[in-house]
């Protein structure tokens, strides 16, 4: 099966001015490679500041203008160029961002989910996705500041599934949620994968990744250090890199002490 997304040796570099006018290149992601297949949840696990969000934004060609990207990204077997990304964004590729700051504070939730479309079909679809994630229809009329953290995340997921995306990139969608809400959000990802979408799940939480993902890519200082089936992380066998072994040992159920 062709992977829906394949990233090969992706590097992202920032240029910034340090002291006066001398420019400094800051490599943030280095030669990162991974693949996501349809119906699969692939987790990218890395510590904070390892460039995880940049990976998501890079795939979507939404990096800030002082960032440069190199490497190959294939979507559905074909190169994902900036132009192609522009067409696919919001249609076939959906981003599920981190939290409520990704919603316009001045706009009602319903209008944001529908992207301003007011036709009856969009309205019906919007109500359908809201109820799918256990949100009442009245949530449509609320502003983002009137949502709880868990509701905001579910609204963001609702935004993503408005158009039946084939690839979903979820960037740290669970921090700050209690275990039950987090489990619920994760079950939604699993469900989306079962319906045939590829899900790229970006997180810092290895334990969480193990519960939801089919495959785990361990990411450190911008580089892939290990790509393994999540079962490898259940047993600890088959992990080759010292960093991923250390991560595995740090899980509470393993020989943490």
């Amino acid at each position: 099966m062709t992977p829906i997304l394949s990233v090969d040796k992706l590097s992202i570099t920032f240029t910034r001015y340090s002291r006066g006018l001398s420019r400094e290149e800051m490599p943030s992601v280095r030669e990162l490679s991974l693949t996501v297949e349809p119906g699969q949840v692939a987790a990218v696990v890395g510590e904070s500041g390892a460039g995880k969000s940049l990976l998501a934004h890079g795939i979507l060609h939404l990096l800030p203008r002082n960032a440069a990207m190199s490497g190959n990204i294939l979507y559905d077997g074909m190169p994902l160029t900036a132009d192609r990304a522009r067409v696919l964004r919001g249609r076939e590729i959906a981003l599920i961002p981190q939290g409520v700051t990704y919603l316009d504070p001045m706009m009602r939730v319903g209008e944001q989910i529908r992207r301003g479309r007011g036709d009856e079909a969009s309205r019906a679809r919007c109500r359908a996705v809201l109820s799918r994630y256990g949100l009442a229809a009245e949530v449509e009329g609320r502003y983002p500041f009137e949502l709880s953290g868990g509701m905001a995340r579910r609204v963001l997921i609702a935004c993503a599934v408005m158009d039946n995306p084939r690839l979903i990139i979820a960037d740290e969608p669970t921090p700050g949620l209690d275990a039950r809400s987090a489990a619920r959000i994760l079950s939604h990802f699993r469900e989306l994968a079962e319906q045939g979408a590829g899900v790229l799940f970006i997180t810092h939480d290895l334990e969480l990744a193990c519960t939801v993902a089919h495959k785990i890519v361990v990411f450190r200082s911008g580089q892939t250090v290990e790509e393994a089936a999540s079962s490898a992380f259940q047993t600890g066998e088959g992990l080759t890199h010292p960093y991923s072994r250390a991560l595995w040992r740090a899980l509470p159920k393993n020989d943490f002490l």
């Binding site: 934004h57 979507l60 939404l62 522009r86 067409v87 696919l88 964004r89 919001g90 249609r91 959906a94 981003l95 961002p97 981190q98 700051t101 990704y102 919603l103 316009d104 504070p105 001045m106 706009m107 992207r115 301003g116 963001l156 935004c159």
Partner: peptide, 23 residues
């Protein structure tokens, strides 16, 4: 802002009118 990035990620057009002017 994050919300404009998200709007772009969702393929929204008219960012200036829909989000910038409002905010």
């Amino acid at each position: 802002s994050d919300y404009v990035l998200f709007a772009r990620a969702r393929g929204e057009g008219h960012i200036l009118r829909r989000h910038v002017l409002r905010n």
